[in-house]
């Protein structure tokens, strides 16, 4: 979520509540490879067998509560990122997924996704903290991140954060 990408635009792909990491990327694939492009091709395959083929770069995954529940696999946010999803929008995220997404630099947005429908065009303005549903002329507020987490986001993930600060940033909490 670097400065030049503060406005994201794309189509919504809508899912329900409790989308678990087994659905996002099945254990059948995740243990075999560190090739994220390969994992991306199997994104959400068990829920929607041809999901990857229907994606355009920058599209959004939109879900309800507790997105990313289940296992700790970081391959889940990685598969989403490498499928070129612009961001995941959800009412809430499961805690390990939330951390993993921040750590690998996948934009996640907590907002009330109720009014977003399958196929809606969305504009996400990170600077303004708003999501716009173009067709409905409706805007949704994005729940802000704690300031500690912003440093990880600004760096582009925890690996880059560690590279930048050499470890945990002093006096950050």
């Amino acid at each position: 979520m670097s400065q030049d990408k503060k406005v994201l635009q794309g189509k919504a792909h809508k899912f329900g509540h409790d989308i678990n990491t087994d659905y996002i990327i099945s254990g059948r694939y995740k243990f075999k490879t560190l090739d994220n492009e390969e994992l991306a091709r199997h994104l959400l395959e068990d829920l929607n067998p041809h999901f990857y083929e229907h994606l355009s770069p920058g599209d959004f995954i939109v879900a309800g509560e507790n997105f990313g529940c289940g296992s700790s696999r970081e391959q889940a946010p990685l598969a989403i990122k490498y499928a070129r999803i612009g961001a995941v929008l959800a009412k809430s995220f499961a805690r390990i997924f939330y951390r993993n997404a921040l750590n690998v630099g996948l934009p996640i947005i907590q907002t009330d996704t109720e009014n977003i429908e399958q196929g809606n065009e969305l504009v996400v303005d990170l600077a303004k903290g708003k999501v716009f549903i173009t067709k409905k002329n409706l805007s949704l507020a994005i729940k802000p991140f704690p300031s500690f987490v912003l440093d990880i986001i600004e760096a582009g993930g925890l690996t880059e954060y560690f590279k930048k600060y050499g470890g945990w940033k002093k006096n950050s909490v």
Binding site: S72, E74, R99, L158, T159, F162
Partner: peptide, 27 residues
């Protein structure tokens, strides 16, 4: 691993994280 929460049965705080968090811990 998400089931790291198991050890709480021994009266300790244990929780699951992902790989990059673990890398940060190793470092």
């Amino acid at each position: 691993d998400s089931h790291t929460c198991t050890y709480g049965a021994l009266n300790l705080f244990s929780t699951g994280v992902g790989s990059t968090d673990l890398a940060a811990v190793m470092a």
